[in-house]
Simulated assay, not measured.
Amino acid sequence: MSKEENPEAFYAKLKEQLLETTQWPSEYLYKFIVLSDLHKIAEIEAIFDFSGAVIKTKESSNGKYTSISINVRMENPDVVIAKYIEIGEKVEGVISL
């Protein structure tokens, strides 16, 4: 089952897994892939602005895509999921890993 087919079930399972495997608050690593478009990268970075996040980007070998890794301290699984949803709503064509 993918997030696109049933987002509620996907996020419910993710929340359950995060509660079982992590003590909160905790560091969380987000990973995204977007087209190498400075505007899209900036949109993602802005969502994590002022959160103390460590953001690293790496362009693909052909330069078409950019991977973005964001390490940030999160309070609980609900906050983690809220960021995924916000990114999905605000940044067109983003792939969450």
Rank of each mutant, 00 (worst) to 15 (best):
I55S: 05
I47F: 03
V80D: 00
Y84R: 02
V72P: 03
A82H: 11
K15F: 00
S96W: 06
I70S: 02
D37L: 05
S61D: 14
A82R: 13
S26W: 05
L97T: 07
T22Q: 07
I33T: 15
I68D: 01
E86P: 01
I33D: 01
M1K: 11
S2L: 09
T57Q: 12
T22M: 08
F10L: 04
V80F: 02
S67A: 10
V72H: 05
E59W: 03
G63V: 12
A42N: 11
V79F: 07
N76D: 14
V94I: 14
P25W: 05
V34E: 02
E43S: 12
A9W: 00
K15Y: 04
A46Y: 06
S2Q: 04
N71E: 10
G88W: 03
E43W: 00
I33R: 08
L38I: 09
A82G: 13
I85Y: 06
I68T: 03
A9D: 05
E45T: 13
S60V: 10
I95Q: 10
S60E: 15
V80S: 01
W24T: 10
Y30G: 01
Q23V: 14
M1W: 06
V80K: 00
K40E: 02
R73N: 11
E27Q: 13
A42W: 01
S26C: 12
G52M: 09
K15A: 13
L18V: 13
N6Q: 07
I87A: 04
N62E: 02
N62Y: 05
R73L: 11
K58A: 09
M74K: 07
E43Q: 15
Q23M: 08
T57R: 13
K13T: 06
D37F: 05
S67M: 09
M1T: 09
K90E: 10
K90D: 04
D49K: 13
T57N: 09
A46C: 00
A12S: 13
I33Q: 05
G52V: 06
R73Q: 11
I95E: 07
L29S: 08
Q17I: 11
V80N: 00
I85W: 07
E75M: 14
P77V: 08
A12Y: 00
G93D: 14
T21E: 12
D37A: 05
K64Y: 05
F50H: 15
G88R: 13
M1R: 11
V94F: 06
L14W: 06
S61V: 13
G88A: 11
E20Y: 07
V91H: 02
D78T: 14
E75F: 07
I85Q: 15
K90M: 06
L14P: 01
V54E: 12
D78C: 06
R73V: 13
E4G: 01
T66K: 07
I85R: 15
A9Q: 06
T22C: 00
D37K: 00
E92K: 14
P7F: 04
E16L: 01
K58E: 14
Y30E: 04
K13L: 04
F48P: 03
N62K: 15
H39V: 12
Y28S: 05
E20S: 11
A82Y: 04
I81S: 07
Y84M: 07
E89L: 13
N62F: 00
A82P: 03
S69F: 04
W24D: 11
N62S: 10
W24R: 08
G63M: 10
S67N: 15
I85T: 15
S2E: 08
E89P: 01
F48Q: 09
K64H: 07
L35Q: 13
Y11Q: 06
